[in-house]
Design a protein around this nucleic acid. Structure first.
Lengths: 162, 162
DNA sequence: TATTGTTATACTCTATAACTATA
DNA sequence: TATAGTTATAGAGTATAACAATA
């Protein structure tokens, strides 16, 4: 069962094989897939003038009204300062409101406007279509396995960070 | 078998549930896992003064000597201009060389120095340890499945980009 | 004293146009 | 003309320190 490995000389590496060292790493494949997902998601959100981050923020605010910015930043796994510009943009576009919390005048209670909720609904449909398209090749059972594996990796990373 | 779902009132969302909308998306879990992987990988490479990108570039150059910059950029899936600073850094540190190609004086043939190959070996060991640590919770068979799924997603993204 | 949101800042990664020197 | 590497530049995401207002 001898396989003719390749015709090319060893010292002239083929372009398509140059990433062979990297392809041995699981993280390489996960990164490539994640890049593809992000690109496709942003393309799907572009007609709505949203990006992954602005969509995520709008989605969380729309479905969990009353959150404070610190809580939202936590839910999005981003730092508080980085959330400010995102909310500035969503607020400027009339998609969310920063309501003062009466009991704690330092904080804002975030909520989506009617327009924000409508845009969220449209965006969610676009995102679901995007996921359906990108994950067609993966059976529902495998998608469940995949989600579990991703959660395990994330938890392992959490553990390593302490 | 009734489960007491939660004690909290509905209109005061719990912090831990704020990302419920996002957790329905497979892409959300993949992104979180990828972030964890990148953070852990960079932490593993930090003692060697490498990052994911500089490691990847060094790895490809070390194992495929003679590549041109355009080919390397292609292997790394980055744009040619963005590769320049990375190679500048690796060259300045004496890890790689840019050798003129005699037959095409526009191009450089990239190769790792002895020191570059040594650092690559050390880095590869660190990266393997990092992957072993992060992926302990995933059986070898599942890791194979995972890789296949990532490749499928990436190809679906490629198809969507045309 | 501690916390909320904010400003300022910096670093990394990414993407595009335009230049130079060669081909 | 076209290509290889480069420069300049801009956008997006991420991270930290420090501030004013409030608790």
């Amino acid at each position: 069962m001898q396989q003719p490995v390749t015709d090319a000389p060893e010292d002239e590496p083929q372009t398509g094989d140059a990433d062979a060292v990297l392809r041995e790493l699981l993280g390489y494949h996960i990164k490539r897939a994640q890049s593809a997902i992000q690109a496709d998601l942003n393309a799907a959100l572009k007609p709505l003038d949203l990006r992954m981050l602005t969509f995520s923020a709008l989605a969380v605010v729309a479905s969990s009204p009353g959150l404070r910015q610190a809580q939202l930043a936590d839910a999005l796994s981003i730092e508080r300062p980085n959330l400010v510009v995102i909310l500035d943009e969503l607020e400027r576009r009339g998609l969310i409101l920063r309501d003062r919390v009466p009991t704690d005048r330092r904080a804002y209670a975030l909520k989506a406007t009617l327009e924000g909720r409508r845009l969220f609904e449209a965006a969610q449909a676009a995102v679901r279509a995007h996921e359906a398209a990108l994950f067609t090749g993966i059976s529902p059972e495998d998608q469940v396995r995949l989600r579990e594996m991703m959660q395990r990796i994330w938890r392992a990373g959490e553990g390593a960070r302490e």
